[in-house]
Amino acid sequence: MRKNYSIAYILLIPTFIIIISFIYYPAFYTFKLSFHRMAPFGNRVIYVGLKNYIRLFQDPEYILSIKITFWFLLFTVSLGMLLSFLFALLLNEKVPGTRFYRTLIFAPYAISPAIAGTLWAFLLNPVVGHLNYILLKLFGFQVEWLTTRPYAFFSVAFATVWKNLAFGIIFYLAGLQSVPDDLIEAAMIDGANTFRRIVSIILPYLSPITFYLIIMNIISSMFASFGTIDVMTAGGPAGSTSILMYKLFLDAFTYSRTGAAAAQTVILFVFMVIVTIVYFTYGQRSVHYQ
């Protein structure tokens, strides 16, 4: 038996080498850097203790960014979940051409965030954009979607929702197809209308999926929407689309403030730890039948 164990360990070595060099070591290094300040070319490193963190929380821009991130997550996750549930319900109907619609709706998920951003930037362009053209022809007004508030925020948030939608739909669709037909039939015989069936049977049945999707949507809105934002608004106007992840990118790669960026990474890490704990604590026991 002992021999088997040692073989297992040996087989795990390559995995560990990769994990350690690409995940644990950089993570550890980031923690270390967050207590230091580093010159742009790395030729000087000064220990500063907690100064990076203190400065961050004294920075009104950072506080604003926390608020914006909160609203951004609230908007993208709630709207994204609602829409993906509704789309899944529709796609679950046995209408001719469902497969075709499904393919079309899943397409956004397959493209990269930066390309999604470019597409939306084109659509919302004030001069050659399609949306403004339609608005002008139909209603006689135009909006500068990406350069004025609050439109820039909603444009970016909506693009993120659109991008994440397919992921939610796939999971909901799978969930819907596993709802037992006899349960629905029984409810119909008892006289429950569509709305009642959704609220009392389908939603509770799908609650583990919903919970999982909320977590996944938080993660993707938080981290993957970076590309979309960079292309669409670059964090503007006046910082109104600058979520924490974008701020981190700016400090790390534009302003060479390595220490400050490391501190922000640690803060995001703590946030993710909390989300993960919540998921593992409540994720498993959130199935409720009514």
Binding site: P126, M232, T233, G236
Partner: peptide, 10 residues
């Protein structure tokens, strides 16, 4: 007409 941040093309 103002552009996005640092958007020369626009």
């Amino acid at each position: 007409l103002n552009t996005k941040k640092e958007d020369w093309d626009e």
